[in-house]
């Protein structure tokens, strides 16, 4: 990994669901969690990787010749096939493809270049109460770069937000919080066992960080909402209590969507959570009511 550069998989302008107003969200690549429902699986690896869009393939065969591993084949019967076990993510094929069928996900960028991109929408932030959000992957795994980036944005008077899973050392989180106005703190499940089964890690460190972060900064709690996993009324009551205890300003419930289902095969993976569904509309409203009765501000989907 490069010390002066951040590995980024997307910079999304006109983000309107990652904090207040119109924002630019910088998505840092690499995540220690492996949430089953992950809607951006291309954000997980700590290195740039290949992502395929078969629909764009015109069958020109340029990629077959470009691949040093011989992982790509082209036949009349099956079209282009990639043998993912042989792919070493050298990404030479992405340079050969002119149809945007083989694409590189993730690039290394220096802080001033990222800031320059963010700065472009400064007028929109000012008029809408927006700013910049750093998200992931897990942004704190590149905490040095993220701290530098947010410091630079703050120095220009921008509102800054950090969207985090909370899964990192307190020191790293604290170093970034120094330059953060608002934390969008993700909570997946309040039971550590359930959390571990669905994400690969327990939640002790996460909850500890939440408590500490809330003492220093404004926080919004965000939770993906998956039927049968974390949408029971009892669990929502617990979440509400957590929010109230820590003075969170708002809870956002993000109903599950199938974004990851289509992307997994594009990365040569099998989707690990084929049966997941979002809770029914009326159930979501019931949960919202429960939280609002406790005086919490709730938003659905953002």
């Amino acid at each position: 990994m490069n010390n002066h550069k951040g590995l980024i998989f997307d910079i999304q302008r006109f983000s309107i669901h990652d904090g207040p107003g119109i924002r630019t969200t910088v998505f840092m690549k690499g995540c220690p969690l492996r949430c089953l429902w992950c809607s951006n699986p291309e954000s997980q690896d700590f290195f740039p990787n290949l992502m395929v869009r078969d629909i764009n393939c015109k069958g020109c065969g340029a990629c077959v010749n470009a691949c040093p591993q011989g992982a790509i084949t082209m036949t009349q019967a099956e079209g282009r096939k990639i043998e993912w076990s042989r792919c070493d993510q050298c990404l030479l094929c992405t340079g050969a493809c002119i149809y945007h069928s083989l694409n590189r996900r993730g690039s290394y960028m220096e802080v001033p270049d990222i800031v320059q991109e963010i700065r472009k929408d400064e007028g929109f932030y000012r008029n809408s109460g927006g700013g910049v959000t750093v998200s992931g992957g897990e942004a704190l795994w590149q905490s040095e770069i993220v701290a530098q980036l947010l410091a630079a944005c703050k120095a220009e008077g921008m509102h800054t937000a950090l969207d985090t899973t909370g899964h990192s050392s307190w020191e790293k989180l604290a170093s970034v919080l120094n330059f953060t106005d608002l934390v969008l703190f993700d909570v997946k499940h309040l039971d550590s066992g359930a959390h571990r089964r669905a994400t690969g890690v327990g939640n002790e460190q996460i909850l500890e960080n939440l408590v500490k972060a809330a003492k220093k900064k404004r926080i919004w709690i965000r939770m993906p909402l998956i039927a049968g996993f974390n949408d029971s009324e009892a669990h929502i009551q617990e979440l509400t209590a957590l929010a109230k205890r820590n003075g969170a300003e708002k809870i956002s419930l993000l109903p599950y969507h199938e974004g990851g289902k289509a992307k997994s095969p594009q990365l040569g993976r099998i989707y690990p959570y084929p049966d997941a569904v979002a809770p029914a509309e009326n159930h979501i409203h019931r949960l919202k009511d429960i939280m609002e009765k406790e005086g919490i501000v709730v938003s659905i989907g953002s």
Binding site: G21, I22, G123, F124, R126, N127, S128, G130, S299, S302
Partner: peptide, 17 residues
């Protein structure tokens, strides 16, 4: 309704530009 600040912000920036 909850997107109103965003839309108004967008429109005002259009005006400012």
């Amino acid at each position: 309704d909850d997107m109103k600040p965003v839309f108004l912000g967008y429109l005002k920036t259009w005006r400012d530009k």
